[in-house]
Design a protein around this nucleic acid. Structure first.
Lengths: 314, 314
DNA sequence: CCATATCAATAACAAAATGTAATGAAATGA
DNA sequence: TCATTTCATTACATTTTGTTATTGATATGG
């Protein structure tokens, strides 16, 4: 006969015995407990025996072939229930994480990108994942790169090309370059504006030093068209504001400018075709979290649809 | 290939996987976790795999043959730790219950019994079980019987004989009947007082209607000695108080009177021997709890020792 | 009183979980 | 390059957890 011993650590303790114990207390009999657990009565009997062995003393007294909980069992019951609820919370939390509907998603993106195409995409995502909290910040491209590489942010959007070694880059969307100008402007009636058309025109440009700006400069240079840069600024919004007042032709990212187009501001494709490309960046040091992956897929889908609308056929 | 699924209930969840998960997070590697758990590394690997399968997604990313926790793992970790701590609390509580050093013990006993022999016994028990709370109340014998039978009290002391069907009775201690009297009393010099010695003496008696009183009455009757009951009262303390003032001879329970004996109050054995017997009662409807059992054993031991001192050899 | 039903325990066995030792692959560092 | 470290995998033993069938004790209803 085994000498009764007090429990040491968690040896021999299992969630199943705890569940059986709880079910017996709650239902009042081993048979009913078995039914509620979806197992057979002998299994419950043995799980209970194993728990009793763990604690070292009887939890029920057997009389008239029934089980009656002892004082000790009732004293333990509360703790057991709390622990099982804890285990259930683990499963629940896991399910939420699995469904990516819980957590904090930190995104960095250029200001104009947030104000432009990203706003609706993020808004949609938030509606679809109501319990996800989102942090959406703007930083300089250099800082954004570092934040994402160091995993201080989960992901970001950045203008391509991008070759930071700590970043994983996925091309996310492309946008054509357009000329933004007032309907009163002489070129307003054209369906497409060539570099040559801009000879002598006041230009509104932005992004001095950026790759995309270098591309524009180089196109003018190759075409032998001198640039008459009337206004140099930093945001698409400002560039469009001045174009609307007919102070010149702004050469801007079509997708970012789209929101400013109206009766007083026309957007006309620029030729030769000049593509702005944005990438989705994550850290190369760790795989995306489930939440980030969910957001990535959402972006793929949304931006894909957005682009199909903008550029139906290539 | 298994499609990832979110966790349902507690299926497939085990404390061991949770322990393995916690150990890996805390120690930073599966090998170290294995060491700290006292099992082998492959076992840890598989426990982790089983937990990952339960939650439905990866908890670590494997790179450079190392394990790095994902965001999801860190989010789950807190809950897992709480649950494991809960399980540890179950074991701790069980150990405390096992050692009977936790809980509430409700005792009922006659007032004179508490004031007399029980006080030291309970005090000792409290010292040995510092975290046990004790409720010690006095009720009429009838109420005491009901309280214990209905399990409103865990146990009680009662004068025997006792034959309530709902009670389990264990004889606990016996005490001789003594005469308490002043040193100035004529009988003070005797080593033993017989019934006949009390002929014509003023008597102080108590417990009218009780079994023990009936026994005294019957002894006098059989001896043909008329009783000169000068004072009728209810407690041993009062009976002794008057005996001390030499107002008569009190015939009382020796063990209860013992505490009042001093230079002004002698206790002299009464003959024929008349035994007061006290029983330890518990409910017949349920077995004693561990705590009650521990108290019962403590009483057995303490009263046994006490009785050996009082009546060294029979 | 007896047939019947219920309940818990147990035995015998199948399946799953959990342990082991041995080995392999990949990265690390001397 | 070579020894070491780390994790995954394989093959196998052991323990846990489940099953069905049976038993003994106890109500219950005729």
């Amino acid at each position: 006969m085994g000498t009764a011993t007090s429990p040491k650590g968690l040896e021999g303790l299992s969630l199943k015995s705890l569940e059986a114990f709880r079910a017996i207390i709650q239902s009042g009999s081993a048979t009913a407990a078995a039914t509620s657990l979806g197992i057979t009565q002998p299994a419950v009997s043995r799980l209970l025996a194993s728990f009793e062995q763990h604690v070292g003393f009887a939890l029920f007294y057997r009389e008239k072939s029934r089980l009656f909980p002892t004082e000790e069992a009732l004293a333990l019951f509360k703790e057991v229930e709390l622990t099982l609820q804890g285990a259930e919370r683990i499963s629940l939390l896991a399910r939420n994480i699995f469904n990516s509907d819980l957590g904090l998603l930190k995104i960095v993106a250029p200001n104009s990108f947030i104000a432009g195409p990203l706003a609706d995409v993020v808004a949609d995502f938030m509606r679809q994942h109501p319990r996800v909290n989102i942090s959406l910040d703007t930083h300089s491209p250099a800082t954004a790169r570092e934040l994402v590489a160091h995993r201080s942010a989960d992901c970001g959007f950045i203008q391509l090309p991008e070759n930071h070694p700590g970043l994983q880059v996925e091309s996310m969307l492309q946008s054509h370059t357009v000329c933004a100008l007032s309907p009163a402007h002489p070129l307003a009636s054209k369906g497409r504006i060539e570099v040559q058309d801009l000879l002598g025109q006041n230009l509104i440009l932005l992004g001095k030093g950026r790759y995309s700006r270098m591309q524009i400069d180089s196109i003018f240079q190759q075409a032998g068209v001198p640039m008459k840069v009337k206004l140099e600024t930093h945001t698409v919004a400002i560039a469009c504001t001045f174009a609307r007042r007919n102070l010149g032709v702004a050469i801007v990212n079509g997708m970012l400018a789209r929101q400013y187009a109206d009766n007083n501001l026309l957007l006309i494709p620029f030729a030769p075709a000049l593509i702005y490309e944005y990438g989705f960046i994550t850290s190369a040091h760790a795989p995306m979290s489930r939440l980030t992956t969910a957001f990535f897929n959402h972006c793929r889908q949304s931006f894909g649809r957005m682009q199909d609308e903008l550029i139906p056929k290539a």
